[in-house]
Amino acid sequence: MIIDAHHHLWTADYQWLAAPGLEAIRRDYTVADLVPQLDEAGVTATVLVEAGRCDAEETGEFLAHAATTPRIAGVVGWASLTDPAIAATLAGYRELPGATKLVGLRDQVQGVADPGHLTRSDVRAALAAIGAAGLTFDLVIHVGQLTSCAEAARATPGTIFVLDHLGKPRIAAAGLAEWRTAVGDLAGCDNVVAKLSGLLTEAGPGWRVADIRPYIDTALELFGPHRLMAGSDWPVCDLVASYAEAWTAIDASLGELSATERADVLAGTAIRTYALEVGS
């Protein structure tokens, strides 16, 4: 069994897609585009993650997709950590079609300039509220924010945090030492799991498995297979690799694991963390 723990859907008018260099993925990506990719790669089910539109309507649309698409086992929706009405936002999501597939939330923390953002009292309260609601919180951050993430995780032990893309190490800039030092503290928090996703994009065009392997090996050392899950980061991965190539690269990086450890990374951790209901 394979669970794609991290992919998106979007339409060509998402504002962030207007940035230079994103022309190759500046188009609509729909459920109809997704399912053939899953079939080709042998993926059983997926987790659909908010895609940077940063509005509640997107979460409603994604839950509706999940309600009618059995292969989408979970949705990580969007919520602002500075929303004073976050409790009402969560309650509203629970009333929507497909609400049973809401498994987590995410905010675009990577775009926040304030280095003290995750220390704010309202942000910490929002993180605690998300955990109290039985939802995880996905951390989409850059490597310079890893220390503050560790502090937030320790301050809100009742919330499960999911580190997207291993915290975006600067693979193309040979940033292994910098990243290892920064991620180690976060890996020491028992309420944090991490995703082997987005690494090919960080490696850039012309990537090789050898470029990402040291990061995956380090993540296995620091988190262990039982706290790691794999994701394609499709369609973002289309900038440098196809959906199938993304899975081939991950598979090639897990060659030394036991069958049980591979099963954790490829499915078990995602199922446990997101409380997914998937077939055998």
Results as ranks from 00 to 15, higher is better:
Thr273Ala: 12
His165Cys: 07
Arg53Pro: 01
Glu202Phe: 00
Ala194Arg: 03
Ala12Gly: 08
Asp13Leu: 10
Asp122His: 09
Ala219Pro: 10
Ile216Leu: 00
Arg26Ile: 07
Ala66Met: 07
Glu61Gly: 12
Phe137Ala: 07
Pro225Arg: 02
Ala73Cys: 06
Gln15Leu: 13
Gly74Leu: 03
Leu266Arg: 14
Leu228Asn: 09
Asp164Ile: 05
Thr218Gln: 10
Val49Trp: 01
Gly111His: 11
Glu221Asn: 09
Arg208Ser: 15
Val31His: 03
Asp233Leu: 06
Leu63Arg: 10
Ala88Val: 12
Ala91Glu: 15
Thr159Met: 08
Arg26Phe: 08
Thr46Lys: 04
Gly77Arg: 08
Asp28Tyr: 03
Gln37Trp: 02
Phe161His: 08
Leu135Glu: 07
Lys168Asp: 09
Ser258Val: 09
Ala99Arg: 13
Thr44Leu: 12
Met229Phe: 00
Ile130Phe: 04
Val236Asn: 09
Pro169Tyr: 03
Leu228Lys: 05
Ile160Ser: 14
Thr147Tyr: 09
Gln110Lys: 14
Thr69Gln: 07
Pro84Leu: 11
Glu277Thr: 15
Ala85Gly: 14
Glu178Ala: 14
Ala133Asn: 12
Lys101Cys: 02
Arg213Gly: 06
Arg26Cys: 07
Gly231Leu: 02
Tyr14Met: 08
Leu63Tyr: 04
Thr159His: 07
Ala259Phe: 04
Thr89Gln: 14
Leu163Ala: 06
Ala241His: 10
Leu38Tyr: 06
Leu9Thr: 14
Pro214Gly: 04
Cys237Asn: 14
Ala113Cys: 00
Phe223Val: 02
Asp39Cys: 03
Arg227Val: 07
Gln110Gly: 10
Tyr14Asp: 08
Leu222Ser: 08
Ala128Thr: 14
Leu118Ile: 01
Ala45Ser: 13
His142Gln: 14
Ile141Ser: 10
Gln145Lys: 12
Ile250Asp: 03
Gly175His: 05
Ile3Val: 15
Ala173Glu: 15
Ala113Pro: 04
Gly198Thr: 00
Gly175Val: 06
Ala85Phe: 12
Asp233Val: 06
Ala172Asp: 13
Glu277Cys: 08
Glu40Phe: 01
Gly184Gln: 14
Met1Tyr: 02
Met229Leu: 05
Asp233Ser: 12
